[in-house]
Nucleic acid binder design. Sequence first.
DNA 1: TCAATCCGTATC
DNA 2: ATACGGATTGAC
Length: 694
Amino acid sequence: MTEDEREEEGQLALLPQLARARARQAKKAAEQQGRQGRKRPVEPAPERPVARVLVDVPLAHLDRPFDYLVPASMHEQVTDGCRVRVRFAGQLVDGYVVERVEESEHAGRLAPLARAVSPEPVLAPEIATLSGTLAARYAGTRSDVLRLAVPKRHAATEKRPSQPATPAPRDTDAGRVWDAYQGGQAFLRSLTDGGSPRAVWTALPGPTWPEALAQAAAATARSGRGALLCVPDRRDVDRVDAALTEVLGPDRHVVLTADLGPAARYRAFLAVRRGAARVVVGTRAAAFAPVHDLGLVAIWDDGDDLFAEPRAPYPHTREVLLLRAEEQRCAALIGGFAHTVESAYLLDTGWARPLAPARAVLRERAPRVVITGATDRELERDPGARMARLPRSAYDAIRGGLEHGPVLLQTPRRGYVSSLACDRCRTPARCPVCTGSLWLPTAHTPPTCRWCATEQPGWACPECGGHGLRAPALGEGRTAEEIGRAFPGVSVRSSAGERVLDRVGPEPGLVVATPGAEPVAEGGYACVALLDTWLMLARPDLRVAEESLRRWLNAAALARPASEGGRVVAVGEPATPSLQALVRWDPGGFARREMAERRSAHLPPASRLVTVTGVEADLEEALGALRLPAAAEVLGPVPAPTRAPETDGRARVVVRVPRAQGPALSEALRQMQSQRAARKLGPVRVHVDPVGLE
DNA sequence: TCAATCCGTATC
DNA sequence: ATACGGATTGAC
């Protein structure tokens, strides 16, 4: 501290008002001088001097373009879709130029752009439009959507040109894999002819689906258009990547995933944006890829929860792609071994057509599936089976399989949070009022609904009429070591969690995997055993049955065809509808029935369901201000599930409306969020169509 | 009477 | 978030 400052402080202490007033005057004078210094009139650009800018601020009520003056000095740099820095409410913020125009609608004076970051037009017009649609759909902001859509800039990468792709090979031997599907060749032909067919594709079990996807992309490329393929994870990306290389040749496509790292991701993104690559395969991060002349969007295994974006506004990859298909008038392919209720809904409404194998072809390619009950009596008979806690017939099937090749054992992960189920037939217990799942908040309360908090002391199982409830024990899932001991002398490998195997060889051996981590076996598995199926069905997830069937089908699809001895044995209750669907290999029929049930239970996709979460006072205030559509039901509030520490102590409501009122509900929520942001009220989180709702 | 402070509103 | 304007309160 200097002498002067010390003296100043002394004065402050003696004459505080005087000193502060003087300091203020000095500051004001300095500011005015500064302002005059800045006031030097900016020369506007000779053409289209107005830039419409989407600013990156997190406030819902500021989620619209603001006009800025393009200085002549930045004329060359400022393109439609480029990044800029602007002064906004006194601070420097990032933004995107959505377009440059001749005149502004804004009555006041325009501030000049502060800086042109780079002329690279990273925000494609169709993605700018899409960000608006998605923000409206998910009651979020465009800036949140854009944060997901445009990767971070990497300046060094931007300076380098993108290598243009080699020209499309004409008349390659086209898509014989699609011969197995009714309407398969017609679908490809339509793509090649520049059409925009939309299909829900029931894939045949086996390893041919990546090639089928690649052939669809190739057919689209032959029409001169681009294709975008989204798959759940890195392993699937690699499989489709290999298939694309096979079908299109090298360098005709690009891989786009979040795990590439900033530089490689930006390089891939730029190759797409610049039109150097027209075919893209990637994970959910790729759904926004600005593919030139987009002709086809495709998603594989759309029920995988990796497609649910965990960042606001929580868009689902399938919804992103379907919206793009509508906005950009391109083809859509929703494929998998399983069907989601959403894909069943697309078929039901006629939005998409089915693309499925003939029954005879399916019979030829699918493994033989049997269900084996897990009664204690069966367990007792064989010491090996007892050691592995396996029913005798499952144990025998595994042993039999080991004589011919690799055997896959799928076991549910340990430590699933489970909710209550009927103690007789293991049907998950749901609230008769609103179909939420039941749980025991404390040991001394009756079963209570997780959504509407209704107590159900006299619950009766709708399937079997039983009154007993049980919480399936946690950690019943078994380990590779445990199972290995029951099969002495057999090699046991494990694929789970951090250590996931991509593929295994054709030699006999046990592979123990958790759902989603199953490696592909060369030549297919001789046997696939699905263990503890009731544990998987005991999760409190709203869509357990659908999700369990999806996981079983995905594992079962890795088995050899029945004609080559391929077998699947599921350990569980034979009457369980999802297991029945597995035996019949009828994912479409099961999804159709689930969809009908959901419709009558007022659950998605026939209804739109939204959760609103916040601290109790905020939530109450928010709901008070919310202008809901007429038919809206509000369930709760109940304490929010405390899976993560940040949701601790918060409350949640579930709001649902008939699907037709979905847009009105989203709009009401967006207005609510706008008002709250403008008034600086406490944050409430809105989640439209959450997938893993308990 | 003037200035500090609070509140609401706009942010280009 | 800031920034600003207008109303309100408070100290002489």
